Deep mutational scan, measured.
Amino acid sequence: ARCQGVVCAMKEAFGFIERGDVVKEIFFHYSEFKGDLETLQPGDDVEFTIKDRNGKEVATDVRLLPQGTVI
C-alpha cells in the first residue's frame, strides 16, 4: 500500500517524512527517491511504500506529489 506524507527533514544522505496517516516520522535514504534530488526540499508532498528493515520501518520508492496533495 502506498502512503503519503510531507518531507520534514533532510540530511547529508537521508531524510525524514512526516506521515499523513499517523503522527510519526519515517526515515528514507536518498537512493529511494525516484526523481531529481536537487529539487526535493522540506515541505514537499511525497508518496512512498513502507518496508521493514531490521525491525525498523523505512520509506522506499519515494515519489514527489503535486503540492497540496497531502492535507
Rank of each mutant, 00 (worst) to 15 (best):
A1D: 15
A1T: 08
R2N: 14
R2M: 04
R2Y: 14
R2L: 06
C3D: 15
C3E: 15
C3G: 15
C3A: 14
C3T: 15
Q4Y: 13
Q4C: 08
Q4G: 03
G5S: 01
G5I: 01
G5F: 02
V6N: 05
V7I: 08
V7Y: 03
C8P: 03
C8M: 09
C8I: 11
C8G: 11
C8K: 15
C8D: 03
A9T: 05
A9I: 05
A9W: 07
M10C: 05
M10G: 00
K11Q: 09
K11V: 03
K11Y: 07
K11N: 09
K11R: 06
K11A: 03
E12R: 08
E12H: 09
E12F: 06
E12D: 14
A13P: 06
A13T: 08
A13W: 07
F14W: 13
F14L: 04
G15A: 06
F16I: 09
F16K: 07
I17N: 02
I17K: 00
R19L: 07
R19C: 11
G20N: 11
G20D: 07
D21T: 08
D21Y: 05
D21G: 13
V23T: 11
V23H: 15
V23L: 11
V23D: 14
K24C: 08
K24F: 02
K24P: 06
E25K: 12
I26H: 05
I26N: 01
I26C: 05
F27K: 10
F27G: 07
F27I: 12
F27E: 13
F27Y: 10
F27H: 07
F28D: 02
F28V: 02
F28W: 02
F28Y: 01
H29G: 06
H29A: 12
H29L: 06
H29D: 12
Y30V: 07
Y30M: 06
Y30S: 04
Y30T: 06
Y30N: 04
S31V: 05
S31M: 06
S31C: 07
S31Q: 15
E32I: 00
E32W: 05
E32D: 05
F33K: 00
F33P: 02
F33M: 03
F33Y: 13
F33I: 02
K34A: 10
K34Y: 07
K34G: 08
K34C: 09
K34N: 10
G35C: 03
D36S: 12
D36W: 01
D36I: 06
D36Y: 04
L37Q: 05
L37D: 03
L37G: 04
L37N: 05
T39R: 15
T39W: 05
L40S: 02
L40K: 05
L40P: 00
L40M: 03
Q41C: 13
Q41I: 07
Q41Y: 07
Q41V: 10
Q41A: 14
Q41T: 09
P42E: 14
P42Q: 14
P42V: 15
G43D: 02
D44H: 11
D44G: 05
D45C: 13
D45Q: 12
D45E: 13
V46C: 04
V46M: 00
V46T: 00
V46F: 01
E47Q: 15
E47F: 05
E47W: 04
E47V: 12
E47I: 07
F48Y: 08
F48S: 01
T49H: 06
I50C: 06
I50S: 04
I50V: 12
K51M: 06
K51N: 08
K51H: 08
D52C: 10
D52S: 14
D52A: 12
D52E: 12
D52H: 08
R53T: 12
N54L: 06
N54Y: 04
N54I: 14
N54F: 11
G55V: 00
G55K: 10
G55S: 05
G55L: 04
G55N: 12
K56G: 10
K56Q: 09
K56E: 13
K56V: 12
K56W: 08
K56T: 12
E57T: 10
E57D: 11
E57H: 07
V58G: 03
V58C: 12
V58M: 15
V58T: 13
A59E: 01
T60E: 05
T60Y: 04
T60K: 04
T60C: 14
D61L: 03
D61W: 03
D61I: 03
D61M: 03
V62I: 07
R63M: 09
R63D: 07
R63P: 00
R63L: 05
L64W: 02
L64M: 15
L65I: 09
L65Y: 04
G68V: 06
G68C: 06
G68F: 07
T69W: 06
T69C: 13
T69V: 10
V70M: 13
V70S: 13
V70D: 14
V70L: 12
V70A: 14
I71D: 15
I71T: 14
